[in-house]
Amino acid sequence: MLLSDGVRQQGLSRVEAPRIQAQIDTMAGAFHLNATKPSVAAAYTAEFLLPAAARML
């Protein structure tokens, strides 16, 4: 487990939309999928995460 500043501040499993978008863009470019590139909302949801208090270390 990586205990970064982000994990200390926001808990485990928190992902920022710009980071996901960058990953989507990288994968779409690598596999020539730009026409079918999914949105961040289609690729990730925080809906199933535990409450923030339960994810804190």
Rank of each mutant, 00 (worst) to 15 (best):
I20F: 06
S4G: 08
L2H: 10
Q9D: 14
S39M: 01
A28Y: 04
T45Y: 08
V40Q: 00
H32W: 11
A41V: 05
K37V: 02
A46Q: 11
P38S: 03
V40L: 04
A43P: 00
A52P: 02
D5C: 07
A41L: 06
E47N: 15
A46E: 13
A54G: 04
R19E: 13
H32F: 14
S4D: 11
A42K: 08
L49F: 11
H32M: 11
A30L: 10
G29Q: 08
L33C: 13
A30G: 03
Q10I: 05
R19Y: 15
V15P: 01
V15I: 10
Q10R: 13
Q23E: 09
A41D: 13
L2W: 08
S39I: 03
V40W: 02
R19D: 11
Q9C: 12
R14P: 00
P18T: 03
L12Y: 06
A43K: 03
M1T: 12
R8C: 10
V40D: 03
A22F: 10
T26W: 08
H32D: 15
L49C: 11
N34Q: 15
E47G: 15
A17W: 04
K37D: 04
S13M: 13
P18D: 02
R55T: 03
R19F: 15
Y44Q: 03
A17N: 07
A43R: 01
R55G: 03
D5I: 06
S13N: 13
L12P: 00
V40M: 00
Q21R: 07
A17P: 03
L33G: 11
A53N: 12
L49K: 03
G29E: 06
L57P: 15
A22Y: 09
